[in-house]
Design a binder for these strands. Sequence first.
RNA 1: GGGGCUGUAGCUCAGCAGGAUAGAGCAACGGUUUCCUAAACCGUAGGUCGUGGGUUCAAAUCCCUCCAGUCCCGCCA
Length: 599
Amino acid sequence: MLSIYQKLTKIFENTLKESLEINQKNNLYNKLSLNLITQSSREDLGDYQSNICMILSKIYEKNPHQIAEEFISLIEKNKNIFKICSSLDIAGPGFINIKLSENILLEELIKNTKCPRNGISLVDKENKKIVIDFSSPNIAKEMHVGHLRSTIIGDSLARVFEIRGYEVIRLNHVGDWGTQFGMLITHLKDVYPEALESRANINIGDLVEFYKASKKRFDNEEEFQKKARAEVVRLQKGDPSSISAWRILCSESRKEFNSIYSTLNIQINERGESFYNPYLESVVKELELKNISVEDQGAKCVFLDGMSNKEGDKLPLIIQKKDGGFNYATTDLAALKYRFSEPPNGDGAGRIIYVTDQGQSNHFAGVFQVAKKAKWIPENCSVEHVPFGLVQGIDGKKLKTREGETIKLKDLLKESVKRAKKDLINRISEEQRTENDNFIANTSNVIGIGSVKYADLSQNRITNYQFSFDKMLAMNGNTAPYILYSLVRISGIKRKIKNARKEEINEKIYFNEDSEWNLIKKLLRFDEVIMSIEKDLMPNRLCNYLFELCQIFNRFYDQLPILKAEPKTMNSRMVLCTLTEKTLRLSLYLLGIETLERM
RNA sequence: GGGGCUGUAGCUCAGCAGGAUAGAGCAACGGUUUCCUAAACCGUAGGUCGUGGGUUCAAAUCCCUCCAGUCCCGCCA
């Protein structure tokens, strides 16, 4: 419905211009023309509204109600308005309530049923490349709920951009480089010396245990620590045996990650920190040459504006440690520069998005500030940090197992599917249905995984959120099962209609009932929601929309017969079912959630 | 000490490019099934939007004060 909104806005803009001219206040146009029309806050009164007359009241020194009357008569000089609106009413102190005409709503409805993107317009920009940096687990460490949030939010944002026609580069900025590899490689060489020569596919088992073991040695054995430090240097110099050990560790981890990505149905390209290694030195050099960095206590730092430490001194961003090593700030700067640079030595991105937890806000603010100083962010390009809050247990504390250990993502997903399966089996026996194993496995998998994703995405990402299987798997409320169930209801109707009368679904549709019109209007809001996500990067708005759409659909379903309605009415209602189905499917696709025919 | 984020119904949260009566879900209470999956729908009850100020015709929303919680602040990421 954005196209209608734009037409409407145009008409109001012209009218405003005219009104300002009459009152000799032309100079205020730019300021006043922002947000001329908004969604109605009272849907019973109109579809859109304009509050401009209350603002003009002060300027014209006139009663807003009177201004509204004059404003409307100016609008009505443009006969196009009658094609769009059925009424323009003045209410309250001076609101203009805009009701759209049924014809234009029906036109839009038919347009959307034919549009594969459901009315979402394609982006019209020169640089369509967007880098999304998300997921980013660490080698030899287990993925946990923190990675889950990044992975799910990043994937959903990527899907939204893709459907808009952007070229999305999904980057997995894996922690595959750095000091921790010293101890890991040293430990590997000690425990599995044969791995390096035979190149046999060594199974080093639980990588987390492996990590813990090497960390323990690093903390306790002096000799080991020395060897580990030397190993880091060897690795960074490209020593073949170190590199080969490093490759083994990475590929073991990769197996783990990929199995989770496959469970979650996530597409992502691995481009770890190591990728930027060749660029680190030049980044540091350039910052030195541009006099942006200085040496302090042996380390090369950039002192940041607007941030200070406990002593009140400016906070540094360290780009080279006193031992000559580089750290994550250096890597992030190199990555940022590379991503904005033109190919072949860069991605040529127009927008870079980092999906990481809120704890890194300061770090990114620092990195962005330095990049700006170094002029690495080209004109008309933008870089954003998309932070998210912690995942907490029901007790409000960081999610942990009973033993106080971090919960493995793998286990968490398994648990969700297991619970979904238990619920399903209960229901099947209660309803005295018979279903085969295949159905049970697939259904519980879609519900289990979908519920975890939906619970996460439906939350405003900024806030911490309480992880609860009971809530996310509930049939009621803003949950995946509720949404999936609405879709199942439509599938049920479609199955029945095949067996029932075969009516032509033509375009001669008509609607008389409120619950039909409410559904139509909600359906047509879809593109507005998508555009708002593109701008503000808040996938929870799509969930919110989905939930409201399902509520409105379920009311419609409850109140009006479809299959038992007379043929013409049935056809019209089926059009609504079909578009609802399409909207639900597309929305769930954009959230990365699979759908079901029955459940 | 500096900075980020959060504080809305008993609980979990929406709403925060200012707008008309602050919304859901859960929990509580009451109702609806000859009908397309009742995993639904309808209704009742529940709120000085942390505090105090300011801007405005209009503030949960913007600005400032304070209070509470949480995260980050030199060579980990």
